[in-house]
Nucleic acid binder design. Structure first.
Length: 493
RNA sequence: GUCCCCAUCGUCUAGUGGCCUAGGACGCUGCCCUUUCACGGCGGUAACGCGGGUUCGAACCCCGCUGGGGAUACCA
């Protein structure tokens, strides 16, 4: 197959994180772009777990990765849980494959053992830098004789396995940056297998891309400088029959955090779990992340993952780094909260109310009925789901606690008057409540709306800010409202 | 040090030689709407890093500089 003449359905991309720590939004951005690209062209999205670093990988992180993609709706066609014809999809289960490939590579002369110790390497690197030479590995063990190998072994030394670079320059046409070239002398022989026999990323990543028939590698800019090595390895892999072609590479821009640094765990907003806890909608997070390095080009910034996939092309990916802006992300989340249906929003908000103890788990039929009435009132007031409990908890309590500092001048008079007229009201609807109160307080007593309704709001909701007052009173019902008014009057007397 | 990447409002971006006295969004901000808070509407603020070319014409092409980032691992 000629890599340049692929049909859409031939295209295979992958997302291959290491399960170290919590999922990170920069990583999710990479997953999103790969997913969108695959979906746009009708190709295959492969999910692979690169757990070759036993010291740092964990089962919890592995599970977190699965949960993250599932929550976000970034469905994968091959990978953990779903399988596929190129599995297993966890590198920790592919040890025999790497061993087999290594022996093929070794047999063909592409590798050699290197006995240099870390100390020796450091010392030589320092000298190279002093002499303004390229500081990478200098090829010391490239052509060891059998006698020298035996001597090292007799000495008790263990060897890493290095890849023998071909000595040619490397040029590729980066999918997002255009033609890129590295001179041969700047990409030294690199380590494929640790002295203890563990294969390294430098080996397993290209090997799995080859075996899994990956056609397009879209990854972070941080991996740009390792591309020449992978190109060299791929040539060797093709030679020994492991790879049938070398994939095309595209390097996505960094996602930056505070202070011109790559977004790190320290940055607020870097952990995916925060978005779940604070109540961001998955499509909103994805919508924002899409804007970090890609745009539709028509000033449209509000779109669903599906709409993104429909419009996604590599030509529109921007090469320059983007700073993560939580404020804008939150604004888009607010847009999404307003955009979904009331029923959807109720479903999203319930877990937050349960957690806060505002409603029972699961909510009672009465609570659900209240929610049906209350959620429309707060839909345009929410930028995160986590803000909901505080906004409507007063609708689910028997009494509300009131901070005395909230009472304004003249509150008592307003409350007494309100209680009196409301006690005699005929229909308890927000319209009639409003017109009665307006006629009595504003027009009758000449009190400004702010001072007329402010105290009532405080008495009813316990807060200075709340959902619309009269609608809230309607939901609460006449009895509770009158109770709260008289309770407030008692404390103020 | 060496190599590589990047360069438009504070931030994300549109812009691929004339449509640009540079457009949109977030932020900030003024006004309107208004029972609070929001939402919404109408405005405002604010950018092509610098210097050379190429061209009738450059944000757009080329070179240099500067600035920022990354790599230079038995991490990924």
């Amino acid at each position: 197959m000629n890599i340049k003449e692929l049909q859409g359905s031939d295209i295979r991309v992958r997302f291959c994180p290491s399960p170290t720590g919590n999922p990170h939004v920069g990583m999710i951005r990479t997953a999103l772009f790969n997913w969108a690209f695959a979906r746009h062209v009708g190709g295959t999205f492969v999910f692979r777990i690169e757990d070759t670093d036993a010291a740092r990988d964990s089962q919890e992180s592995y599970q977190a990765l699965l949960d993250a993609l599932s929550w976000l709706g970034l469905d994968w066609d091959e990978g953990p849980e779903v399988g596929g014809e190129y599995g297993p999809y966890r590198q920790s289960e592919r040890g025999d494959i790497y061993a087999r490939v290594m022996s093929q590579l070794t047999e063909a002369g592409y590798t050699y053992p290197c006995y240099c110790s870390a100390e020796e390497l450091d010392a030589r690197r320092e000298i190279a830098m002093k002499e303004k030479r390229t500081p990478g590995y200098d090829g010391q063990c490239r052509n060891l004789s059998q006698a020298e190998v035996d001597a090292y072994e007799a000495d008790g030394r263990s060897a890493v396995i290095r890849f023998r670079m071909p000595g040619s320059d490397f040029t590729w046409n980066d999918l997002v940056r255009g033609e890129l070239t590295f001179k041969a002398e700047h990409v030294p022989d690199f380590v494929l297998v640790r002295a203890n026999g563990d294969p390294l990323y430098t080996l397993v990543n290209p090997v799995d891309d080859a075996l899994m028939k990956i056609t397009h590698v879209l990854r972070g800019e941080d991996l740009l400088s390792s591309t020449p090595r992978q190109l060299a390895l791929f040539a060797a892999l093709e030679d020994v029959g492991v790879a049938s072609y070398t994939p095309l590479y595209g390097h996505l821009p960094y996602v930056m955090g505070e202070g011109n640094k790559k977004l790190s765990k320290r940055d607020p907003g870097s952990a995916l779990s925060m978005y779940q806890e604070e109540g961001y909608l998955p499509q909103a997070l994805l919508n924002y992340l899409a804007l970090l390095g890609w745009s539709m080009g028509n000033d449209v910034e509000f779109f669903s993952p599906q709409e993104m996939a429909t419009a996604f092309t590599l030509e529109r990916v921007n090469p320059n780094p983007a700073r993560f802006d939580l404020k804008k992300c939150t604004a888009i989340n607010g847009d999404w909260i307003r955009h979904i249906s009331q029923q959807e929003l109720i479903g999203h908000v319930i877990p937050f109310l349960e957690n806060a103890g505002v409603v029972t788990s699961p909510p009672t039929p009465e609570q659900l009925e209240t929610l049906n009435l209350a959620v429309p009132l707060i839909q345009e007031r929410l930028d995160k789901l986590s803000a909901a409990p505080e906004l409507i908890s007063f609708l689910f309590k028997d009494v509300v606690a009131i901070d005395p500092a909230l009472w304004s001048e003249g509150a008592l008079e307003v409350l007494i008057e309100s209680e009196t007229v409301l006690a005699g009201i005929e229909s308890w609807s927000h319209d009639s409540i409003q017109s009665l109160l307006k006629a009595t307080l504003v027009e009758g007593l000449g009190i400004k709306p702010k001072f007329a309704f402010g105290p009532i709001r405080t008495a009813i909701t316990g807060h200075k800010i709340s959902p619309p007052l009269f609608e809230s009173m309607e939901i609460l019902g006449k009895e509770i409202c009158l109770d709260r008014l008289s309770a407030a009057i008692e404390t103020l007397k």
